[in-house]
Design a protein around this nucleic acid. Structure first.
Lengths: 162, 162
DNA sequence: CTCATCTCAGCAAGACTGAGATGT
DNA sequence: CACATCTCAGTCTTGCTGAGATGA
């Protein structure tokens, strides 16, 4: 029998893009598991946070602020409103729109999610000291901002393969 | 019309797990685009790298080394061998196994991919100085190692929702 | 008429599962 | 018999596209 703990090729272990990806996947697992204990998903948190910080908004605006696709906003609002965490009502000023509002239950659910997520961040960065965490977040932010600025890139295209 | 450049909620921008995720997604896009110019995918690179570093191996061993699922190894080897980059032949010593070998064409394709990927790493970390890149990779590695060590976690379970 | 909004149906890719055939 | 390997079919999730209905 072969050993299940074989090491990965050096090239792979050394690639920053792979390292980042690996950490991101772990982070996502931790976040998803934590949120799942309350029956929520990442999108739920994003929408609740946007609503709490910016007040009632249309679904399109929520999508723009959080980076969530229009289709997925629909589904997430459906779910949140079924749970009584937000309310969806037609905008009297523009009847194409729905205005989404957080309920009191939504606010307190958000507080719960905030607590869970902050524990996850601690677990994630457990191997770093406080100073290092700040450094790390600073570097990450610079990389993220640099990427947002630079890409002379085409819009991410959906190209099917033959 | 609403502005398409609305800012995300503070909570979201500040969350390390989200920052990492965002950077990882950008990195993946860059990598995928670069590899796609040669008709390759991430799995192709991983398998070729493993073969070049460790020599001929069974499909199961390749899967273990690279973290690629057994099913996906099958598909990837199919594709690579159709392109003449690897060869699949039965293992005379254990007839359950296929031995996968890189061809000369595979080696030179790998060299091409290496070049492309190293350009991607540069683009990814473009906003950091050389010293900062080392710091960043060091911190990332510590976080990754810490996560690999800590999780008293259950195996990632596949739990469908109702 | 053009454009924005909301909604639904559905695809493609990635990660994974189950089970069968073969062989140790 | 228990276990490892290779393979195929198929599932679930995520991010996204297309298009229709409604209205500004």
């Amino acid at each position: 029998m072969e050993n299940a703990e074989e090491t990965a090729p050096r090239r792979l272990r050394a690639l920053p893009s792979r390292l980042i990806n690996h950490v991101a996947m772990s982070a996502n697992r931790l976040v998803d598991r934590a949120l799942a204990t309350t029956g929520s998903r990442r999108y739920d948190y994003a929408l609740l946070a946007a609503l709490e910080e910016f007040g009632p908004a249309s679904q399109a605006a929520l999508g723009r602020r959080t980076g969530i696709d229009r289709s997925d906003v629909v589904a997430t609002v459906n779910e949140l409103s079924a749970r009584g965490l937000v309310e969806r009502s037609p905008d009297p000023a523009d009847r194409r729109r729905n205005v989404i509002t957080v309920t009191a239950a939504g606010i307190s659910h958000l507080a719960l999610l905030d607590r869970l997520l902050s524990e996850v961040q601690d677990a994630l960065l457990a191997s770093l000291t406080t100073a290092e965490r700040e450094q790390f977040v600073g570097l990450l932010t610079r990389v993220a901002d640099g990427l947002a600025a630079s890409p002379p890139a085409r819009p991410p295209v959906h190209t099917p393969r033959p």
